[in-house]
Nucleic acid binder design. Sequence first.
RNA 1: GGAGGAGUGGCCGAGUGGUCGAAGGCGGCGGUCUUGAAAACCGUUGUGCGUCAGCACCGGGGGUUCGAAUCCCUCCUCCUCCGCCA
Length: 410
Amino acid sequence: MQARHSDYAAALEKAHEAYEAWRAARAELDELRHRLKEGSKKMRTVSAEERDTLRARLKELSDAVKAREEEIHALDEARLEALLHVPNIPLPDVQPGDESANEEVRRWGQIPEFDFTPKPHWEIGEHLGIIDFERAARMSGSRFAVLTGAGARLERAIESFMLDLAREHGYTEVSVPHLVRREAMVGTGQLPHLENDTYKTQDDPPYYLIPTAEVTLVNLHRDEILEPGSLPLYYVAATPCYRAEAGSHGRDVRGLIRQHQFRKVELVKVVEPEHSDDELEKLVNNAEEVLRRLKLPYRVLRLAAGDMGFAAAKTYDLEVWVPSEGKYREISSCSTTTDFQARRAKIRYRAKAGEKPRLVHTLNGSGLAVGRTFLAILENYQNSDGTVTVPEALRPYLGGASLITAEGLK
RNA sequence: GGAGGAGUGGCCGAGUGGUCGAAGGCGGCGGUCUUGAAAACCGUUGUGCGUCAGCACCGGGGGUUCGAAUCCCUCCUCCUCCGCCA
């Protein structure tokens, strides 16, 4: 916990105190209830004269129970609330420290050499008439984009390609709601800490717009005890993701990097605890395969504890090469949450019939962020004449076209 | 949106104030029998907390009562009919 941030140590301490207070009060309550229960049983057998005195005595007991219950209720809420602010514990092989302590694990691909100055994707896109930020801004404001013609088709092609590849890797495709209840967001650990970063409707109670399909895919099995032999489960879903991006004003304002709405193909695994380490490596490899097939240069980072998400115990980020910036940018984040989400969402399994249920481990990873893949393709595959070559892997999804020009696909 | 009905253990389903954590059936598991299997029979079979005495949970929350699966309120979900929209 220290490895993440010192504030969390305080959160943990608070949760511990709340728990102890709750437990002590709870024991007393159980005792009171036991006495009340025993007394109530006697009511039926006791004589009429005794009944009134007994009733009076039990009434007092009953009132005492109720008073205690009220206290417990408050203590319980404090305890749960405190617990919700404690993040997951980093696995032992995760480095302490912030972003600067992230470790590069490996690189893949050849960084493209251009005999001209590579343009940023928004210039390429606007020149080709496939990205329109202006019109998007008119209807929706900043951090939105309209994709037209070959742009819209390219986005769809990328997504279909990713879904098909995931299926090849054994994932079951799922079509999920994009609006969820608060409990679902709490179950995966998005809430309460990302409250200001999410969109919600004005209904009462409100719906939350999913910031990632991880929320829906993990909640698929909320409150379930999975049967022996049903694990591992691999799911993939392509959805829009909605993020308010509070606090990111001024960062990546241009282009497709940081949008309020973007499409993403999300991979989720539900696995037995003993396999979660291996499953994470496989998950990362599945995400990497998308980049390899698209021949986009990337590197893999093992994140330091302070740079990981709230629910993650270990995270690998995939970063794709962005020529106009001359650096790698995040395109996927693959994490194991160990039993953190499982505990919140109450997802358990039985290893064998008749055995006690145990918490599962859940993993998630983007496979990949579609908008960022789109941008990476435009930039890495750009030609000096302003056209963009279509990566071979995507051509079957675009009627065999190999080039995006201002006149359309060719 | 309006009117009505219903939510009980893995599933089906009984239970309308106490003896109900909850009949019965199905399924699961173990056993007997069998060369093996089926059938039959017997047993067993929810989850969490716990100081291992106990306590909680019958869709969620609240209330009435000495006592609630059972009565009342409220929310959620599902079903039927009507309306509306596609």
